[in-house]
Design a protein around this nucleic acid. Sequence first.
DNA 1: ATTTTCAAT
Length: 185
Amino acid sequence: MDEYTFTENFNNQERPSKTYLCYEVERLDGNATIPLDEYKGFVRNKGLDQPEEPCHAELYFLGKIRSWNLDRNQHYRLTCFISWSPCYDCAQKLTTFLKENRHISLHILASRIYTRNHFGCHQSGLCELQAAGARITIMTFEDFKHCWETFVDHKGKPFQPWEGLNVKSQALCAELQAILKTQQN
DNA sequence: ATTTTCAAT
């Protein structure tokens, strides 16, 4: 991913009409975590401006996971950094996937919380996803930096945080915690 | 064309 694409999409104070999802996979073996570099990359949604059928980024990601045919006798952790948190529909599809694939753990780190009206409501979607075992968090400085170093063609340049990154991240974190907590009770 | 959330209005 080039620098511009990363900054344009992951800046937590912007609100672009597209979504990028960066993913990486580790195999868990006892206390050891073994990175699987062959399963690393990023996808973006297909919007109305493109020839393909519209499709949210998460669904491409699910398609990729299925195509890997990860060994059901092993345990894997998938980490995905997504510029918008999953909508209700995508959250449900991820929930179903996790229930059917107990050998896979999922950690979603979102740059921003997606709240646009779709059918259903995003809060309950995220809660169900968490109940299915997913870990859902907001991206912090360290996460943006990790993404920059892992997925961006940074040409040796260090990650440059934008103005207000931490303040926004903390506000979104509080918002997400309120969402995930409310529905548990 | 405008607004500004994986486009909706």
